[in-house]
Simulated assay, not measured.
Amino acid sequence: MSMVQEFKQFAMRGNVVDLAVGVIIGAAFGKIVSSLVGDIVMPVLGLIIGGIDFSEMAITLKAAEGDTPAVLLGYGKFIQVTFDFVIVAFAVFMVIKAINAAKRKEEAAAVPPPPPPGPSNEEKLLTEIRDLLRK
């Protein structure tokens, strides 16, 4: 089998295609969440705190000199990315929770209830004794 055919077989496997679709959708979802956090959540949070723009929050490690830009520690952007992560993680958690609930319902509907247990040995013995006493 040639390398091209082997790669084609690998790439067309269901798991690889599903993974590729998941990555593409995840990237698009990440952009939506970044916009939600950066354009909606953070401005409102900044307004509540007192008009602070988190994306501009930074500590200057070295001031700008001539054409050399300043060296900044941008912790505000880190806070914004952390909010992005928390929202994405929560959304993924909710999706997985819904999928697991659907699977549990499906499994519960697919599995027939076990048959009722038969009489125990003691009950069988008592039944035999009763039948012998009737004779």
Rank of each mutant, 00 (worst) to 15 (best):
M1F: 05
S2I: 02
V4I: 11
K8P: 00
K8E: 10
A11C: 09
R13G: 11
R13F: 03
R13A: 07
V16T: 12
D18T: 10
A20T: 13
V21P: 02
G22C: 10
V23Y: 13
I24A: 13
I25N: 02
G26R: 06
A28H: 10
G30A: 10
I32W: 12
V33H: 04
S34P: 01
S34V: 06
S35E: 09
L36M: 06
V37A: 02
I40A: 10
I40H: 10
P43C: 13
V44I: 15
V44D: 03
I48V: 15
I48P: 01
I48E: 02
I49N: 01
I49S: 06
G50A: 03
I52F: 07
D53P: 00
D53E: 11
F54L: 12
M57A: 14
A58R: 02
I59L: 11
I59S: 02
I59H: 03
T60Q: 07
T60H: 03
T60V: 14
L61T: 05
K62E: 14
E65W: 04
D67M: 07
D67T: 13
T68H: 06
T68E: 09
P69H: 02
V71G: 02
L73V: 05
G74R: 15
G74V: 05
Y75S: 03
G76Y: 01
F78E: 06
F78I: 15
Q80T: 14
Q80W: 01
V81A: 11
V81K: 09
F83C: 12
D84L: 06
F85D: 08
F90S: 14
A91P: 01
V92N: 04
F93A: 09
F93V: 05
F93N: 13
K97P: 00
K103E: 12
K103A: 12
K103G: 02
R104K: 15
K105H: 04
K105M: 05
E107G: 04
E107C: 04
A110D: 14
V111W: 01
P112W: 02
P113R: 08
P114A: 14
P116D: 12
P116F: 08
P117E: 14
G118P: 09
P119Y: 07
S120D: 07
E123N: 06
K124P: 00
K124L: 15
L125W: 07
L126G: 02
L126I: 08
L126E: 14
L126V: 05
I129D: 06
R130F: 06
D131S: 08
L132E: 13
R134M: 13
R134N: 15
